[in-house]
Write a protein that binds this DNA or RNA. Structure first.
Lengths: 197, 197, 197, 197
DNA sequence: CATGAATGAGTGTTCATTCAT
DNA sequence: AATGAATGAACACTCATTCAT
């Protein structure tokens, strides 16, 4: 014979997502063409359109993996008392969610300009704002808001921005979490019952 | 001093840079076409090629505005003693440089995926790494490296990421600087002569 | 539980034809995709191919509804004497056939360029030419041929081209028929036994 | 030798219009691809986009050749008294305009479904409605409106629909004009000062 | 100092059609 | 009687870049 008939395997949708995630994270969304994704999978571009309505749709489907845990975290956090322990637990859980979806997160960070016009851009923005709201006290001074926001950024950094630095990934993650907790703790201490001045 | 770099009356080169900066910052590098830049200036695309060799060249020319002050800062910092005061001064000066080139910085942050393959991507990466080197003590533990790195990110955030939050830009900048100083101070205190354990 | 209605019996073929007719008439043949037809019916595109060999085949099947009455009319007309009364009766019957298959006719009129390459294009062309042959006298002058042809066009117009004008559809149809009869009568009067000069 | 360098000739825009008109009329708008147009001219598709913003824009540019004379005719007609002579003169002039832009007109007739969604579709519809308004008397009965409308259709037909019939084109045109005049005259005679009942 | 004209490579997307199940 | 999965060919359109003038 000569041509392997490529038995229509049923996992194509998943394989598209895997390859897309890899290429999006490596090269960026704009610079990754559907042709490239299709070629890697040895299918035609049209096959992608059987499984996803648009290019953005592929990205949306990837986003849900990250979005769901974060949404659950937000729901959980909204029901807890606004104690320091709660805040610390939120950071711990967020760190876990980040780690679980590390490539996507790196992607979001590096493609902000692109992602801004996409559906996931809006969603993501709201999620981060909601997280900050859970971490900061009401009417917190600007510098404390910055602390809480920076705490989240530290963890984002811990997952991917420090990837060029030496050291074990897990240790970096823990270091980032430590700094985040420190920042949020400081902000918390400034609050109504805090001790600092 | 020296010779005026614009011997001719024609300010087209400058106008190209202005428009490009605005569009790159607003829409991203990939999503800004030379056609769009040319149309805004009411010249043809070919005119752009009289002033710049490539699209990337326009970006490079914009980057120098930011790069020079930061390079000077690095040179200055390298000659200072590694005291806390020096580190604080570095942060103050960096904050100034950031503010002076805010749109470009926002652009760099939001277009990391694109910029990575470009010349300015490499340059920028080295600048940030060099800055962190000036801020952290040798052999600092990972968590202190994260603190120093996060300090820089806090200031980046203070310039643009917090732009959706309420409040006066100048106040945000000061808040970000305050948090950055705090982080670097903490890291410094952990050092050989520090007080923490 | 209640019964699941879904009378999904053997009427799919008919439902395809109904939806196709509607969409072809509304949007044109080229601009109506099989995907669209399938989606409206809540079946897959492949299901269409169980019932029809090609897209054109769906159209052909629709055409027969119109074609048969017109063919019968032609056969009947061919056996009648070439009197004015016969000609008037032909117009009346043609008007009926047109009304019965109004959407298809509108479609044929609006998609001439597309239909020309299709089987029904040829068929339709021959039918109209045969009709004109029944309406005009042999060796009629060019202007009378135009009258007969225009008579048919007036009726086509009466069915759909005037649909933007005010007025009741049935009245429009009658007005068109009146004008058509007038035109053919005039042509007839010019013939060998006619009175005009 | 081997490759003729094709000296950038300055008449490309015109050549695009010529080829497009021919192909649009022959094959229809949808079935004519920009690739085909470009290949005939031995330029790239991108060259077409230098001269026209979109495919529809090419068509629009062709339409103006027809549109201008008709618009002038409408303006002229609006200033004349509503006499029979005026109406006849309108038909004569319209016949001239039609002849001058015969291929485009054939195109409009055969691609109604496509043209409907395009800018020229709206324009054309208004032009024809305005023409009918000039030809018919106010409050004319439906059948007279049909006569006026049919008069226009007769002339359209005279230019292209009868192209399969035998005979000299100029003669066909005159025959069509004759029938049109006849129809409008009849409609006119039914008016306030008319003689018919 | 700048334009007019063009290119080559590419993009995301749509379509009618096929076929094993 | 119909689906799930896929294809190949096409499409309108955009882009950075070139170069003679």
């Amino acid at each position: 014979m000569g041509s392997t008939p490529q038995p229509r395997r049923g996992n194509t949708r998943q394989r598209i997502q895997d390859v897309a995630m890899e290429l999006f994270a490596d090269q960026g969304y704009d610079k990754t063409s559907l042709r490239e994704i299709a070629e890697r999978l040895d299918v035609t571009k049209a096959a992608l359109y059987y499984h996803f309505k648009t290019k953005e749709d592929i990205l949306n489907s990837l986003f849900e993996v990250l979005n769901r845990p974060v949404e659950e975290l937000l729901a959980w956090g909204a029901e807890q008392p606004r104690t320091l322990e709660t805040k610390q637990e939120i950071l711990v859980r967020y760190s876990d969610a980040l780690t679980a979806a590390a490539p996507l997160f790196r992607f979001m960070q590096e493609n902000q300009a692109t992602v801004r016009d996409l559906r996931i851009g809006h969603t993501m923005k709201h999620r981060v704002m909601a997280l900050v709201d859970l971490l900061k006290d009401e009417d917190a001074p600007l510098s404390d808001q910055v602390r809480c926001f920076t705490a989240l950024m530290a963890m984002h950094a811990g997952v991917f921005a420090l990837r060029d630095a030496e050291g074990d990934p897990e240790e970096k993650r823990e270091a980032a979490l430590e700094v985040a907790v420190e920042l949020v703790t400081r902000a918390h201490d400034h609050g109504p019952g805090g001790s600092a001045g």
